[in-house]
Design a protein around this nucleic acid. Structure first.
Length: 257
DNA sequence: ATGGCGCGCGCAGCGCGA
């Protein structure tokens, strides 16, 4: 079973790339973030024709998440239960007995902003919910754009980024709190090349200079981690014409689909 | 990372992302 996550930065613009990517990789599940598309405009026909069932939760201009799956999507749930949030950032579904949780964590803007406080509070709500969710679903994968680089090796220039949003200590502690639930970072289950990132700024020729951060992650519950056989980041997608600023992240599980 | 780009909205230029 291959599962993947990709912040597409507008599904409308990136749909051709998503279709091409699906055709090439044939993942079982692809989680999308920043679709920036209201549900009424979601490109369901094109994705269905490509062989994928879709669950989606979007809004105009900002945010928006979707789960694409070859197998039926069951028990679809929207948002964090009991958490009032007008921003469409969370979508969960069960596929082939695996609980897929797709998140678009708030960016936080800067450490002295209200948005940063919203981000930390939001992560706390997410963690509390997942603690419960893991009891119901021992096979759980948390995929998405976390907007957190967990370690220095996930940052092209850790000195410059120290204390900055995406790499500040409280954000990294929030990431650690997710790991403390028993989740494991699938990317780090395997030996990886150095300086592997999932996001590069559009500016400053950041991609060409590999000035990136690893902020998109696939965390796995213990049961899934023990079935994990590969994990990688598809940098190739970032080389496309009109690319998203994020690259897809992929994990392969030893599970029958 | 002082900004530089790309996106949505909407028709100019701004807010936002990361």
């Amino acid at each position: 079973m291959m599962i993947a996550t990709w912040n597409v930065n507008s599904l409308k613009v990136r749909l051709p790339q998503v279709l091409e990517w699906l055709a090439h990789y044939q993942p079982d599940v692809l989680c999308l973030q920043e679709t920036k598309t209201e549900d009424v405009n979601f490109q369901l026909a094109e994705l269905t024709a490509a062989g994928y069932q879709c669950a989606f939760s979007g809004q105009k201009t900002y945010n928006g998440v979707a789960i694409l799956s070859k197998q039926p999507l069951q028990e679809i749930s929207y948002g964090i239960p009991g958490c009032v949030d007008t921003q469409k950032r969370v979508l969960a579904a069960t596929v082939n007995g695996v609980r897929i949780v797709n998140v678009y964590v708030p960016n936080g803007q800067s450490v002295d902003s209200d948005k940063y406080q919203y981000k930390l509070g939001w992560l706390k709500e997410l963690t509390a919910w997942l603690e419960v969710e893991l009891k119901t679903y021992p096979n759980l994968a948390l995929l998405g754009d976390y907007n957190i680089a967990p370690e220095a090796r996930d940052v092209h220039d850790p000195k410059a980024w120290e204390g900055q949003v995406l790499f500040s200590e409280p954000e990294r502690a929030a990431f650690q709190a997710l790991l403390n639930l028993g989740l494991q970072d699938s990317f780090r289950l395997f030996e990886q090349p150095e300086k592997m990132f999932s996001w590069w700024d559009y500016r400053m020729h950041a991609f060409r200079r590999n000035m990136g951060l690893r902020i998109d992650h696939i965390l796995l519950s213990a049961a899934l981690a023990s079935a994990c056989k590969a994990a990688h980041i598809d940098k190739e997608a970032r080389k496309a014409e009109r690319p998203s600023d994020h690259a897809p992240v992929i994990t392969e599980l030893n599970l029958k689909v």
